[in-house]
Design a protein around this nucleic acid. Structure first.
Lengths: 332, 332
DNA sequence: AGCGCTCCCGTGAGCGCTCACGGGACCCGG
DNA sequence: CCGGGTCCCGTGAGCGCTCACGGGAGCGCT
């Protein structure tokens, strides 16, 4: 889909309206902004002129004067993934409390589009926040000089300001839960873009620490969608039929995994247990409901806005780490 | 949640940078915008000055000059309702194709907040689109003079430009499907804010036309959430135990209804069938999957942007009516 | 008549930036 | 020695609007 840039009809200015109504700019301004010191009849005439010219004040000229409006650019990977509406919900709420505007960029998990979004964000917004899929993209953000609150992408963001998730302890909750239920041979469905992602490494480390049988072959990578999860679980169980427990990168993949398992005639959790990550409402809808490592995503969005506000004020926001907790439901 | 407006640190201007670097505005502009006619060493010095002053060009001043950036304000009711991410997805895609910005307003289904959103939208965006819950809100939009593409709210929007849904024919598909399956006594779970909403009226009219037993008591109103649907179905079935088929305002309510039914020990669709509206992906996740009147919501979002573009060009977009179709899955 | 007040309305300045110029410094060839 | 070119850099103007002022007209009062 590509559309040729429509030659926007030249907008009428305040001067045009003034000329048509036979008054000065200032009088037009008074009429349009509902201010005092203007005769009722004059106001009527001006407003009529404004309507016939289809006049609308330029937000740029206005913004130039009362420079109080703040705009936050929010970068998300895929609004079709239920994780992001959840996040956006928190961001929107916090932004509204501060009277900020939120402009949304959906990058479709494409690093190149992330860079583009970041670039336009840099001169369209005052501050940014969101998930960045690779360190290279983060580096680009830094180079652009935009104040940006990085939301935990799963890899180490170094000293970049933002909101983190204590991924290792979350993964530990999941793996320990599987181990406690007696599963000795477990697998993982990974959904990370970046090899530096912490979930996979944590999974392998903790599983081994607990004496479980895992190796690199017990991890299957998949696109982060329900279909991806279903396909991955098929591959994983056919390669490793002995596996009785699966940890997934997120809840969307968990839902897909459960679907795939059921489609293959396996019972969840009896034949194979599944533990997700994120604790989305989505997980409660399916049968069985997904046991998951819960993180308060909305709150994460709110904290992101708070961090952005700190950046805007020229201060360094103190690092925040979201502590996950296990929500045991039906799938494990 | 209410935050006191942080006294934003006064931003450095191009002049400040120029002074610090000992050059003119124009030279700073050349350095920052990566243009020619500047010495490499000078450029380095300027950029350094810019960094120490934390300089970022004002988007307003820029916008005032190259007035090419278009911003669309999108008003949605509740991003937590899966319908809206679906819509936003289409809007975002079309907006990106035109190189537009999208600013998002979530009104939480509150008409008062809709009015507020509309007001700020009016001077922050070039054009708007979205769902408006009452005719009064639409009237406010018209009064403000913002070009606005109304997405079909279910009630008659008169001559307002936008994208409509052929609700009556959609409702007909649902009711005829229930009738064809032999259901004679059916009910509805309504989720409309406005009494003028077409779904309820269409439901009653078509049911009667088909000779089914319905009256006003066969319709239960509910907040548009899964919990709302579950509560409503409980009320409806206890009041009218003879009902064997239910049509719901949307898929979210349908999912709730199915939950409520199953919780009450009823089988779906054997004991009570359910037909939803919208055809969201959500409906395929639950057990049984929701039979629903499908509307291509993403496409609706794209069409909304197209209509907005027409408005911006000063033309009247030709009215579009989305034609729904029935997607039979498991719940009816 | 003269003063002060209210009610309207208009004019200059300036928000921060870019565009279109103009112009100095320097080098080169004739 | 001078015209012409290249390489840099700076100055005025103006984008569309609002703020701070100034000021004319009309009225009532002393």
């Amino acid at each position: 889909m590509n559309v040729s840039p429509e030659p926007r009809a030249k907008r009428a200015t305040i001067e045009d309206v003034a000329k048509l109504a036979g008054v000065s700019r200032q009088t037009v301004s008074r009429a349009v902004n509902d201010k005092a010191e203007i005769d009722a009849e004059t106001k009527r005439r001006v407003l009529e002129a404004a309507r016939t010219l289809n006049y609308r004040p330029s937000r740029f000229a206005r913004g130039l004067i009362r420079q109080d409006t703040t705009t936050l650019g929010l970068i998300i990977s895929d609004i079709g993934n239920p994780f992001f509406p959840e996040l956006a919900s928190g961001v929107l709420r916090a932004a509204q409390a501060r009277d900020w505007q939120v402009v949304l960029y959906d990058t479709g998990e494409d690093p190149e589009r992330e860079v583009r979004a970041l670039t336009t964000l840099a001169d369209q917004a005052d501050v940014g926040a969101g998930f960045l899929s690779t360190p290279a993209v983060l580096a680009h953000a830094v180079k652009l000089g935009v104040p940006f609150a990085v939301l935990d992408p799963g890899w180490d963001t170094g000293s970049a300001p933002g909101v983190g998730i204590d991924v290792p302890s979350g993964v530990r909750l999941a793996v320990e839960h599987l181990a406690a239920a007696g599963h000795r041979r477990i697998g993982m469905i990974d959904g990370a873009d970046d090899p530096r992602d912490k979930r996979r490494a944590s999974f392998l480390a903790i599983a081994r620490e607990l004496g479980l049988a895992v190796d690199d072959d017990a991890v299957e990578s998949a696109p982060r969608s329900i279909e991806g999860g279903a396909a991955a679980v098929r591959a994983l169980t056919s390669r490793r039929p002995e596996i009785t427990g699966i940890f997934t990168y997120n809840d969307v993949l968990a839902v897909g995994a459960v679907r795939g398992l059921k489609a293959a005639g396996l019972r969840v959790p009896e034949d194979c247990a599944v533990v997700g990550f994120d604790g989305l409402p989505l997980g409660e809808l399916v049968e069985p409901p997904i046991t998951s490592v819960y993180v308060d995503i909305r709150r994460m969005g709110e904290l992101a806005v708070a961090a952005a506000a700190e950046l805007l004020a020229g201060r360094a926001p103190e690092p925040v780490l979201m502590r996950p907790e296990l929500r045991v439901r039906g799938s494990a």
